[in-house]
Design a protein around this nucleic acid. Structure first.
Length: 479
RNA sequence: UCCCUAGUAGCUCAGUUGGUUAGAGCGGCGGACUGUUAAUCCGUAGGUCGUAGGUUCAAGUCCUACCUGGGGAGCCA
């Protein structure tokens, strides 16, 4: 008999039909006359209830069925007599596809801590929380591609291995085929990268932006959606060594166009989640509320779905760095020296506590900060006429902080060249980037959206290690 | 990398100012009972208290170092 996915099975009403379901046991409750098995196949957060009449044959089978076992069940679709579900399957025959020894299987039909499940990353897909996150993650990948495709953006695959070490976005992982036990050396004792696979030093990409710009300066609107690697020793709930980033790059866009696009994108994918991931979001919402029960009322998060709708309802607040400094300088927290880092004046780099104040306390909405001091931003950002700020924009979200970072790019060959020299960026790795400013240079803009940070926001999870199946962080490469 | 904090049964945790044989709930196992819903009830097994040193008559409890987790900070997405 052909297998029916639980997701579609639960929507059927053709009672009396013979069906086959396959999946993994979540719980088993047995008694003298009847046993109930909650079966899940990952197609939906809901389980299907299998009803097993007790007889000699089934008694023996049920002894071997525990949480985690894989079953194939032939049975009859039935209207449920119980109150927890409308449909169930009356079992006719059970095949045990794979047993799960209860002495060894670590997942129990109870709440496990996220920390514990992180150590069981190979099995955590089998929990409601992690399967819900995986389904939402999928939906968001799909939504991102949809959004750009609808707007005639072309998806570009930028390289994962790069010869450029000047992207400036962070420490890089080195890539080599050389024998690390016996590295080829030059006469002066330095490592001879000419003997390496590419004939030069290679790294994993920290951003596809520079290559994305090349494409945008021919194709107009492009985006990348790929893995990104940062070898920073970051130990926080918001950083990964390997993460996924969406980087659109648009010719003829100024900073305002850029902000409009970023805000549209975020609102589009949030709406998509509300439209397509309702059950998973409702589950995660309940999970979060249970988790925060012990917290004081004013420290609890806004209910998840309410929060998502709230972000959709209003335009993001847009203000310049200079205006933000004013707000912070005039804030009670700054005047009463309640910030750990007191804002002394213009030019200060904003700390997490300041960003959180702006987003969570002052404006109580997502905030887009623009026109930062040039000294605290990357070399490729367009310089303003004032000579001290650049056309940068950061989108700040509650709890998450910076979810998007972007800018209008410097299109002037001379200005860019001067900047590169100032910062001692090696010309031999930047010549191709500079040539785009030499030949048909135009105003253009782009940004990077951290995919996992987006998923954090959407799921209400608090640790980024729980929104990617196999997190890579310092000293963690088990799975 | 820095600051704070935690590590006790398979899981979640309690263990009082250092003082006899280290406890609970859940899970497992055995049984009872019931169209059950993380079922319920009764019984039962299970721990060299993260590791290594040290202080003390006596250490799960105090001290030091290390390992691992968590929270915060920096780097950023």
């Amino acid at each position: 008999m052909k297998r029916t996915e639980i997701r579609s099975l639960l929507e059927r009403t053709d009672y009396g039909t013979a069906v086959n379901v396959k999946g993994w046991v979540r719980t088993k409750r047995s008694s003298k006359n009847v046993a109930f098995i909650a079966l899940n196949d990952g197609s939906t957060i809901k389980n299907v209830q299998i009803v097993v009449e007790m007889n000699e044959e089934n008694d023996k089978l049920l002894e071997r069925i525990h949480t985690g076992a894989a079953l194939s069940i032939d049975g009859v679709l039935t209207e449920s007599m119980g109150s927890g579900q409308s449909v169930e399957v009356q079992s006719k025959s059970i095949e045990i596809l794979g047993e799960a020894n209860p002495d060894e299987y670590p997942l129990q039909p109870k709440k496990h801590s996220l920390e514990f499940l992180r150590e069981k990353a190979h099995l955590r897909f089998r929990t409601n929380t992690f399967s819900a996150i995986a389904r939402i993650r999928h939906a968001m990948i799909f939504a991102v591609h949809n959004f750009f495709n609808d707007r005639n953006f072309y998806n570009i695959h930028t390289p994962i291995i790069t010869g450029s070490d000047a992207e400036g976005a962070g420490e890089m992982f080195q890539v080599t085929t050389m024998n690390l036990e016996n590295l080829p050396k030059k006469e002066d004792g330095s490592i001879d990268f000419e003997k390496d696979f590419f004939g030069k030093a290679a790294n994993l990409t920290v951003s596809g932006q520079l290559e994305g710009e090349l494409a945008a300066l021919a194709m107009s609107n492009i985006y990348t959606f790929g893995p990104t690697f940062r070898a920073e020793n970051s130990n926080t709930s918001r950083h990964l060594a390997e993460f996924w980033m969406i980087e659109p790059e648009m010719a003829f866009y100024d900073l305002n166009d850029n902000m409009d696009l970023a805000e549209d994108l975020l609102k589009y994918v949030i709406q998509y989640a509300l439209d397509h991931c309702r059950e998973d979001l409702e589950f995660l919402s309940k999970r979060q509320q249970d988790e925060e029960k012990t917290k004081k009322e004013d420290e609890r998060s806004m209910e998840l779905i309410k929060k998502l709708n709230f972000v959709l309802a209003e335009p993001f607040v847009r203000l310049t760095y200079t205006e933000a400094i004013d707000v912070l300088m005039n804030s009670k927290l700054n005047k009463k020296k309640k910030f750990q880092y007191i804002i002394e004046g213009w030019g200060a780099d904003l700390q997490s506590e300041h960003e959180r104040y702006l987003v969570e306390k002052h404006f109580k909405r997502p905030v887009i900060l623009t026109d930062y001091p040039a000294s605290i931003k990357a070399f490729y950002m367009k310089q303003n006429e004032d000579g001290k700020t650049v056309r940068a924009m950061d989108i700040l979200f509650p709890q998450i902080g910076e979810i998007v970072g972007g800018s209008q790019r410097e299109e002037s060959y001379n200005k860019l060249l001067i900047k590169i020299k100032e910062l001692d960026i090696p010309m031999e790795s930047m010549w191709w980037y500079l040539e785009t400013r030499k030949f048909g240079s135009v105003p253009h803009s782009g940004f990077g959206l951290g995919f996992e940070r987006l998923i954090l926001f959407l799921t209400g999870m608090s640790n980024i290690r729980d929104v990617i199946p196999f997190p890579r962080t310092p000293l963690n490469l088990e799975f």
